[in-house]
Structures are given as C-alpha cells and as structure tokens.
Design a binder for these strands. Structure first.
Lengths: 200, 200, 200, 200
DNA sequence: CATGAATGAGATTTCATTCAT
DNA sequence: AATGAATGAAATCTCATTCAT
C-alpha cells in the first residue's frame, strides 16, 4: 500500500483554500502556485485531485453553490403557509450568502466565466440550470398557494418567481458592494410590500 | 480643431471595437493584439489613447454604462404619474440592455473586476456609485409619490428602490443566460403585482 | 529458485510491454506511468527492476537487438556456398525486422539517443559495437570466399561488408516509411545484380 | 514604421543556431531557452518567426535537407555516362553529409520524430516524399542507361535505386558512429564492384 | 503621429523519482 | 516486495508594454 491518505479530506482542504483564493483575486489572477501554497499541498497534488485549473475552479463553484442551495431550499419545504415560505426562502437565501460574503466573488467570477469564450458553455449551462431549478421551486410554490387561495389567481407565477429570485440576486450584489445596509431588513420590507401592494 | 475631432473619432472606434471584444472573450482572454486588430489601429495607438489595458477596459465600461444610463433615466423624468414612471424606469432599463445584450458580458466582467484584488478599488467604487445613483433616483421618486398619496406611506422607500433595481439586474442576468423568455413581460407583470399586491 | 523465475518472468513482461510503448510513442513521450500501466505492474516495481528510465530503455534495446541478431546471424553459419550465405544473411536480416516492424521505431530512437548529449556515449558505443560485429562477420565471410575463389580477389572486403550492411539498414528504413513494397524481393534482386554486375 | 529588421536574415540566424543545438542535444533535450540563447534572440522572437517548437524543428530539417539535396542532385544531371553519374550521385551524397557531419544527428532526430506518435504524420510524410524523390531520380537514370545499353536490361531499376540509396544512408550512419574510416573510398569501391560484379 | 518587432516575466502543466505504508 | 501519493523542477508558450524607426 502506498501512503494512506484521506482523499476526501485532502480534496476538501484544497477546495476550501482555493475557493477563498479565487474569491480574493479572481480566476485569472490566482495562480496554481498560490492555490498550492494556500492549501498547503504541492502543485503536483492539485493535478492529482483536479484535472486542470478550470476543473478546480468549477469544483469550487459547485462546492460553494451546494452549501448555499441547501440553506436556501431548506425553508421552502419547512413552513406551512405560502407567504411565510416565500418570505423565508428569500430571507434564508440572503442570510446564507451574507454569512459567506467573503466567498461571494466566486459567483461573480462564475458569471464572468459564463461569458468568456473558452469557458462559456460549461459555466453558462451550470448557471442556467441553477436558475431554472430555483424558478421551478418558487413558481411551484406560488401556484400551489394560488390553488389554496392564499395568492391572487391572476398573478403570473413564472414571472413572479423569476423576478423574486432576481431581486434577491441583485440585492446581494448591492450589499456586497456596500455592506453598510441591512439586506435582510430590505427583503422583509419588500416582501411585505409585495404581498399587500404598494399602491395606496 | 479637425485634429481633435479625428482623435475623438479614433478613440470612439477603439472603444466600440474593444467593448465588443471584451464582451466576447472577457478581459483576460482578450489581448491587446486582438483589440488593435478589431479596432483597425496599431497596438501602439492603443497606448496613445489609453494608458494601459485596464484603463481601456474601464473606459469601455464607462462608455457602455453612459449609454444605458441615459436610456434608463429618461423615463424617470417623464411627465406622468408615479406608477407609470416607476414601471417605465424598470421597463426601459430592461429594454436598453436587451437591445445591447451582446455587450452585457462587459457588466459581468466589471463585477468580477470589482472583486479581484488588483482592480477592486476602482471598479467597486464605480459600481457602488452607480447603484447609489439609481437608488437615490428611484427612492426620491417613491417618496414624492408617497407625499402625493399615490403610494402607501409606510413603504420603506430605500428598501423598495434597492429591491426594484436588484430585480431588474437579476432579471437581466437570467435573460442573458436564457434568452427564451420575455423579460419585459415579466417586468410588467411583476410591477403590476407589486402595486396591487399578490396576497388575496 | 521459484522466486528467481518469477523475477525473470516479471522482468520480461516489463521489457516486452515497454518496448512496445517506446516503439509507439518514443522515449520522451512515454511516461513511467504509461509503462507501468502497459506492463500491468506498479510504478514502484519499474524501479525495482531497472535503475531509471534510461536503463529500462537500454534494456529494451538490448532485448530487441538480441532477438534480431540471433535471427540475422543464423544463416551466416549455415553450410552452403559463400553466395548463398551472403544473400541468406541479407534476406534473414530483412525478414527478421519485417516480422517485428512494429518495434522497429525503437531502433530509430536508439540512433537518436546515440546523438543526444546526455545519452550519447552509452548508445553510440552500443551501436558502434553492433555494426563492428556485423562487419567483422560479413567481411570474414567475404575473405574466406575470396580465398576459396568464389569471390573476386580484388574486392575490398571491409567496404563490401559495410555497404551491404548499410544497404539492408537503409532499405528497412524505407520499407518502414512505406510498407507498400516488398523489401525481400529488392534484396534478392539487388544481391544478384551485385554478384553478376550491373554493367552490360 | 516599426524597427526595421531583415526578417530573412534573422530567420536564418535562428535556423542555423537551432539546427546546431538540435543536432547536439536532440529535440526534447533542447529547450526554447537554449535555442533563444544560441541564436542570440529573445524567446519571444522565436515565436515571432515560428509558430512553435515543432515548427521550428521542422524548418531546421527542411533547411538542412535542402542544402544536402542540392548538392546530391547536382551531379546526377551533370555527367554524361550513366556509370559516372550513378557513382557521382552516391559520392556527392556522402561528401555533402560528410562536410556537415556535425548536423547529421538532425536526420536521426527526424527519423525518430517520424516514429513518435505526436509528430508521426508530418515527419514520416516528409521522409517518405524525400526517399520517393531520390528513388525516382535514380531509377529513371538507371532505366535510361538500360535503354542506351549501358546497363544490363534485366536489372530491376526500382530495387537497384532503393538499395543504392539505402546503402548510402546506412553507410553514413556507420560513418557517423565511427569516423575512423573513409566512406567515400567505400562508396567508390562498392560501386565499382556493383558494376562489374563481385562473383568471380 | 504611428507602427509593430522585441522582450522576458510568469502562467499552466507534466513527469521521473522517492519513500511511507 | 510492492504500491502509488507526493513532490517540485523544468518545459512550452503568451502577452502587456516599450521604443527605434
């Protein structure tokens, strides 16, 4: 037997360190040397666990995304009434990202990667799928709330889902740029407005 | 005089071509050679008009942003009632970007640049200012509508402005990823919901 | 005892697989990983049987050469007249290599290794010895044929031996490059011409 | 206008230096740094003149080959009687290579490259063409000599051409390995034997 | 003014070899 | 005796920037 290693543990160590470094300096400005140093492994090991730099970055994204997703989705299933579940979803999404705000730039890098010619397909596909999943979850919730009479029947569920998710996304960007305001308060206030209407 | 006009025209030619190339391949994957070729000028000329690659990119962003801004803000000042002006703002913003969707990736690159350690200060500052301007415009509009009784007085104007702008931003990202849906329809539907409330 | 047999068998397994891989991709483009995989042993085992990559390659060459040599020399010793033995030597040399044409590139790699600064001494020495042996064998045969009156006495035995061996060598290279022609037919035709003269 | 350079002169400077280095250390053991240093240009310039290392090596081969070819072919056309022309061809080929023996290893490297998986197609094609050209020249000469009655009519012209070329090739390899003998003397002696026959 | 040849630091990636298990 | 994880030196190639012409 060769050196016995917990491959999963080592992989995770690389992933955590790399995500941190990618978030700090971006994909291109972070070298494999940086990553190896930050993870406390040799450059060669990086290639033992990930085929190349892009794959490593993609894995960082997947890892980070999985954590956020789990948190965001949790509340959707947990509460009973539709209003609470929708508000809970928005609030938890914001909260989850707020707690990991230092890693948020990874998402910005992923968006950029989805635009870059070399990496377009892979990353835009991943994002497309991610948003589609979110919209499906939220719009399903909206429709069932309409069925049970909790939400107005003439509301376009797809549009509402897309806009709600977009609002949370856009809010986080603003918060990341300027952490002086309280995004969860904004979400709560906004969701209440949305339910009762802002028109007098 | 004629010289100055020539310089401006050449600068604009560089700017347009560069914005297109940056949008196609991203900042790092676009070389100065690419840009010179695309603009039909020599590499040396690029440095005649812009101090370095980052400056050129920043100028592209400023140029693109100015175009969008002009379109987006236009309706805010239009003479009409608060509801129409708010909806008009959202709609025009979406429309402006939709018409220039090929250049949208430049915004994604700017967000990424705002996160990268080397370029953070400059780009995050620019974005921060941009969003603050938008929020100020919208929240002012909201408050005056509240004063005139068109909007409920207990709505948090800052939160509403931030969330509305975020929603438009987030929607565009989704649309860029998947151009199969109609973002302006979503915006209209959503804004109506927001005014009248979605709760039954 | 059994152990020793095992070791020899394993060594041979490594040698066969490595020769095949070296022939396919060349010395530099074949990694120790490739070789271990192809031989069905671990990378560590390779170093158990051979000091390093160069030693392993040299052993492959020796092994391959020994096989060819045995076949080529066989006929030289056969009981028959000088003409038949010379033709037989040329024919068998060609035949032996033709049967192992897939491994022929190993010889090309050896020639290249004999030129490279790092490996020059060892490989050029080996080739020098090999050709000297061949020439000695053939020229001895020529001289004895001259003594017995089968060959003209004024022929330079060394030159004839060198050229004959060179001709076979050069022919094989051409055949390897373009397997569409019949090298044994060429050899036979040529040897006959050589004996009876091509001048009218 | 940018720096005015004689591109052809610089290209040739790179070619000469590179051929020398490739001959000394082989393709793989010669780094682009080595080549730049030897040619007295920067590494970047190498890529200005040649797309990559393989292209540079191929160009070295072409350049070296062109020189040899010119010398070898010259005599084929120059002499009047067939015997003199055939002998002259063989002699000049040997002489040309003997004068450039320090660069001869480049040919060995090319043969190896023709076997290596990555570069096989390109280099084996080049060699195949080269040998086919040589054979065509020589066999044409042989056939015309047969027509004019200078050579026996029953000699297989193709086989004779292939073997003669092979003999020169193989001789040079032996000479390169062991420069203690006189290859031109061997060629002359051998060609005479070939014309008059070695059988008594 | 404009050009584009030249530079060389620095990027990603490979791989022979070692050695803990 | 056998394994294969780990290492890090060294390779090829790119590209922002400069500056002679």
């Amino acid at each position: 037997m060769a050196r016995a290693v917990d491959r999963d543990a080592k992989r995770l160590k690389i992933l955590e360190a790399s995500t941190r470094r990618f978030a700090q300096s971006g994909f291109d400005a972070t070298s494999m040397d940086d990553l190896a140093l930050a993870a406390g492994v040799s450059k060669g090991s990086l290639y033992d666990y990930f085929r190349n730099k892009e794959d490593l970055f993609y894995a960082c994204f997947e890892w980070f995304e999985a954590q956020l997703l789990a948190a965001s989705m949790a509340r959707l299933a947990e509460q009973s009434d539709a209003k609470a579940r929708l508000i809970g979803f928005a609030d938890t999404s914001v909260q989850a990202l707020q707690e990991n705000i230092a890693l948020y730039p990874v998402m910005l890098e992923v968006w950029a990667a989805a635009a870059k010619s070399g990496t377009r397909e892979r990353f835009s596909q991943a994002m497309r799928t991610l948003y589609a999943q979110f919209r499906a979850q939220v719009s399903t919730l909206v429709r069932s709330a309409q069925a049970s009479g909790d939400l107005k029947p003439d509301v376009d569920a797809e549009a509402l889902a897309g806009m709600m998710i977009g609002a949370v996304d856009g809010l986080l960007l603003q918060y990341w740029l300027d952490p002086s305001f309280d995004p969860r308060a904004w979400v709560k206030s906004f969701m209440n407005s949305l339910f009762s209407g802002i028109g007098s």
